[in-house]
Simulated assay, not measured.
Amino acid sequence: MNISQDDMRTALNELECRTNFTISNVTEYMLPKLKEALYLHIENNTPVLIIRPAFEVFSGELATLDGVHAQYDYHHNAQMTRFPTRRHKSLKESHYGLAFKFETAESVKLFITRLIEIVKG
């Protein structure tokens, strides 16, 4: 069972993640007190959080958190403008990142807390 869109947004707001913009089914968030972006993408009514591909070395660790499930292929979307680009299934390059799904609001909190620790080093 995956977390609902509303529960995901509530969890991110409670963690003090700032919203920058929403374009169709993608919302850009910034980690609290940091200049690190992540994206909430609604995919078939399922919320997915996408982080920068630079964190790939930590994806195994993040996926072991209770209720966190990594998608093992890069997630591409043109609206993820703070992320790098690469060619994927077209002639144009597209922004990409690492996608994660969550079971509960608590799993989102564990994930964001650990991500903040990783960013702060």
Score class of each variant (00 low, 15 high):
Leu12Met: 12
Ile51Val: 15
Thr85Cys: 10
Tyr39Leu: 02
Tyr72Lys: 15
Lys33Phe: 09
Leu65Met: 11
His41Tyr: 01
Met80Lys: 02
Leu91Asp: 02
Ser107Cys: 00
Ser59Ala: 13
Glu103Cys: 05
Phe102Arg: 04
Glu93Leu: 10
Leu38Met: 10
Glu56Arg: 03
Phe55Ile: 12
Ala78Asn: 04
Phe21Met: 03
Ser94Thr: 13
Asn77Pro: 05
Leu12Lys: 11
Asp66Phe: 00
Ser24Ile: 14
His75Ile: 07
Arg52Trp: 04
Met1Glu: 14
Val26Pro: 05
Val119Tyr: 09
Ile42Lys: 06
Glu103Ser: 12
Thr85His: 06
Thr10Trp: 09
Thr27Asp: 00
Asn45Asp: 14
Ile23Pro: 03
Glu117Gly: 00
Leu65Glu: 10
Asn25Tyr: 03
Leu115Arg: 10
Leu15Pro: 11
Phe102Tyr: 06
Leu62Trp: 03
Phe58Asp: 12
His95Arg: 13
Ala37Lys: 01
Val57Arg: 13
Val57Glu: 14
Arg9Phe: 03
Ile51Phe: 13
Tyr39His: 05
Pro84Lys: 12
Ala63Asn: 11
Glu56Gln: 01
Ser94Arg: 12
Thr10Cys: 03
Tyr96Lys: 09
Ile51Tyr: 08
Ala37Met: 02
Phe100Gly: 00
Leu62Cys: 02
Asn2Phe: 07
Gln5Val: 10
Thr81Arg: 12
Lys89Glu: 12
Glu93Cys: 11
Val108Leu: 07
His76Thr: 10
Thr22Val: 06
Tyr72Met: 14
Ala105Glu: 14
Pro53Ala: 01
Leu12Ser: 07
